[in-house]
Computed example of a mutant assay.
Amino acid sequence: MNAALKNTAGNARLRAALVASGMTIEGLAHEVGMDPRTVERWLNEPGRTPYARHAHQVAQLLHVDPYEIWPTLGNRRKTSAQPRDEMLAWYPTRGTVPAALWATLLRGAVDRIDLALSCGLFLADAVPDLVELLTERAAAGTRVRLALPDPTQAATQNEATRLLLVEDLYTALQHVPGVRMVRHGGIANDVVRADEQLLVMPRVDGCPPAAAPVLHLKRLDHAPLTGAYLLGLDHVFTTAVPLVNTRRLAAA
């Protein structure tokens, strides 16, 4: 292996992506039209960030997100990240989100997972092994928080029963170490958070949740857009009440 790749200093994420791709420093430099010594500086000098066009070329070649490799890329000529830098993608409806994206984000979370949902049924459908996945992440040390709507505040008995049945889908998580389950009294947006990435489903008046758009956001430095939704998540979990028993169905 090239000595520059053995170096443990510098940009570990770029180094790992380069090793995973099987490409050499010289090969990458050739593909992007750079001197190999420049690529070595990207690898070995902490904080070294290439120009945006080179960063995106490299990311495309290595099949990675450029902002994962260079988190400050969006700030190269700015003092702080702008909302457009935080937007990785957007989808016109929940059904147009790539099916694998929900599970991919959750499975890749290391530090935390937050789920603030107005129902929770759609996510259980999108990720069939959701309970097992969250249990595995909690066992690995990921902090997991799940907020579902409070059935006691439902407008009708039928709605309360439906929400209790949805809770029942997640009941196995209730006593899993590292998982916190709560009931909220209503939320403005559905949010799925996996570390620094969020899938946000903002409410639209007169539009059912499934037909509303979905924003895929990535937190960059003190990102104003993502930061607002993270504050919203903190509000949800601060004001929510603990979920005591997920199997108290209305018929009981």
Results as ranks from 00 to 15, higher is better:
9 A>W: 05
11 N>K: 03
12 A>T: 07
12 A>L: 10
13 R>K: 13
13 R>I: 09
14 L>S: 01
17 A>V: 00
18 L>G: 01
19 V>Y: 00
20 A>H: 11
20 A>N: 14
21 S>P: 02
21 S>Q: 05
22 G>N: 08
22 G>R: 09
24 T>N: 05
25 I>A: 00
27 G>R: 08
27 G>L: 05
30 H>K: 11
30 H>C: 06
31 E>D: 10
31 E>H: 11
32 V>M: 03
33 G>N: 07
34 M>Y: 03
34 M>I: 01
37 R>F: 03
38 T>K: 06
38 T>G: 08
38 T>E: 10
38 T>S: 11
39 V>T: 05
39 V>I: 15
40 E>C: 00
42 W>R: 05
43 L>F: 03
44 N>S: 14
46 P>C: 09
47 G>F: 04
49 T>W: 00
50 P>D: 05
50 P>Q: 04
50 P>A: 07
51 Y>S: 12
52 A>R: 10
52 A>H: 07
52 A>D: 11
52 A>S: 08
53 R>D: 12
54 H>K: 12
54 H>G: 09
54 H>E: 10
55 A>S: 02
55 A>G: 03
55 A>L: 08
57 Q>T: 03
57 Q>E: 15
59 A>Y: 03
60 Q>C: 14
60 Q>N: 14
61 L>I: 15
61 L>W: 01
61 L>H: 09
62 L>S: 00
62 L>H: 09
63 H>A: 13
63 H>I: 02
64 V>D: 04
65 D>L: 08
66 P>R: 06
66 P>V: 00
66 P>M: 03
68 E>Y: 13
68 E>V: 10
69 I>C: 01
69 I>S: 01
70 W>I: 03
70 W>P: 08
71 P>A: 08
71 P>I: 04
71 P>K: 09
72 T>Y: 12
72 T>H: 14
72 T>W: 13
72 T>I: 14
72 T>V: 12
73 L>E: 07
73 L>S: 14
74 G>T: 13
74 G>R: 04
77 R>M: 15
77 R>S: 15
77 R>I: 15
78 K>D: 13
78 K>P: 01
79 T>E: 14
80 S>L: 11
81 A>G: 11
82 Q>G: 11
82 Q>D: 12
84 R>C: 12
84 R>A: 11
84 R>V: 13
85 D>A: 09
86 E>F: 13
88 L>S: 02
88 L>P: 10
90 W>E: 10
91 Y>I: 00
92 P>A: 15
92 P>S: 10
93 T>M: 04
95 G>H: 07
96 T>R: 13
96 T>P: 01
97 V>F: 14
97 V>A: 05
97 V>C: 08
98 P>I: 02
98 P>A: 08
98 P>D: 07
